[in-house]
Design a protein around this nucleic acid. Sequence first.
DNA 1: GGCCAGGTTCGCT
DNA 2: AGCGAACATGGC
Length: 328
Amino acid sequence: LKKPSSLGITLLDNFKKMERTFMTLRPEPPYDFHLTASHAVNFSSRYGTDDYNDGVFRRLFEISGKLCLVNVRSIGTLNSPVLEVEILADSLNSDIVDSVSRQASWLLGIVEDLSPFYRMAARDSKLAPIVKAFIGLHIPLTPSVYEGLVMAILGQQISSRVARKLRSQLIENFGPSQDFNSCLWYAFPSPEGLVTADVSGLRTIGLSTRKSEYIADMSSGIVTGKLDLEKLHNQPDSEIVRQLTAIRGVGEWTAQWLLIRSFGRSDGFPYGDLALQRTLGSLVAEGSAFSPDQAREYSQRWSPFRSYVTTYLFAALRSGKLTELLGD
DNA sequence: GGCCAGGTTCGCT
DNA sequence: AGCGAACATGGC
């Protein structure tokens, strides 16, 4: 089977029993689809279940037991953005289409209004050039808190490269999959799937015993109903952090990360993050990294938009443009 | 081979 | 409260 990343746009040619539908979404301008989709896949062609190649963002969703492949492309502009969403599945109904519409909107950050953040950034001479270079970047969000949590735990402490490998391994070993025209696509594993995988199964992909336990325990909590992550959407930031850090395997870094990537809050700030500390150092302190306390202290000036600051700084870092944007 | 990487927990003072 | 070790793996 071919890897999806090598796939052209000829996906539909041989479809016989597949159903297909289209819809359009209108993001809050300014919206840069290429930047936002690139960020969603971490500036590689594939990240977890998400794939971005040839200008098309693709992801396999599992919606009430049915697997749906979603293809999104831009048919608008930065200031007048329009996205075309194509949905493919064995069978479709209006509930599935509604659900895909909601999830795709959330995933690609299309309802976020960036203008208050841009007004603040314009008054900050350090931040302004970096923000300017990524105008229209919205924050991609995880379809479920569970997915964000599992992905964050996988990424704790290890290099981003190792983390990426673990993430694809997790999906390819334990995620539901379906063949679409000789391309195998994977959806994110369900809590049930990872409970079945068990600590021993999770360890086989290269996770430490401890991380395997975190993930297995958390998945089991969701299956048994003891843990309800989605209900945290109704809570204030501080309460989300409090309840998340009570989960074994979740510390402050992970909780702040989830505020940004899974709850869509504007003011998350993972000040314990080594890469963020170094980036802040090169931004304001001539190169020497900030301590966690310094980072948190300095970041106060960016409240309540620290999720965006974090995202734009990482975008600059990961795209390799940070140094050139700093030298004025 | 040693050390570190987009942390967290656990067991010591 | 604060500090150090252990954790799996890949890259330099």
